[in-house]
Amino acid sequence: CDCSSTDCDCGLWLNCRGGPSSAGSLNNCQWYFANEFAIEKNLPDWFKAVQGLMSCAVASSMLSLLIGLFSLCWSSKGCNPYQATGAFANLTFLLLAVAISLFGAKAYLENKAEVLTDKSRDTDHILLFGWSFWVAVGSTALSLIASILYFCVGRN
């Protein structure tokens, strides 16, 4: 996402310069689909694949939440809503796992992104994995736990 300058943050759909997170405004951010997909067209295929996988993961997780909430006040002998919720939670886990593995591997191999840096080095020009990536990693672990719990509940 052309992060050549310092204070540059890069997401799946927009990049920002000058520390947007601290200011809380999107004035210095650029959406990838602005100006007729100007930035999106130049993104590598693996990045587009991560965008697609994350979009499907969002849809799948919302479906599992919907069915999970629905199953709290609905019971039927014909079908088991817990198994359905578990299946969607498991699908979310698979999609997230593939997305973060692909992003992590490609960002490390092609852009030399790092998890932690040595304090003695000049950290101004080093690409680091940001908190959004780690939130996605946490969601992956939780979706696996949720799917196991729902399959356990569904079997009883």
Binding site: C1, C3, S5, T6, D7, C8, D9, C10, G11, L12, W13, L14, N15, C16, P20, S21, C29, M54, S55, A57, V58, S61, M62, S64, L65, G68, L69, S71, L72, Y82, T85, A89, T92, L96, F103, A107, N111, A113, D124, H125, I126, L127, L128, F129, G130, W131, S132, F133, V135, A136, G138, S139, L142, S143, I145, A146, L149, Y150, C152, V153
Partner: peptide
Amino acid sequence: NCLVITAIICVLVTTVGTIVSFATPNWLSV
């Protein structure tokens, strides 16, 4: 029961986490 409540909380946190990471510009930073 307790297991169902734990499971629904996990799904809820997963959904919120997925949406937050999907929409925020901090996957990589310089």
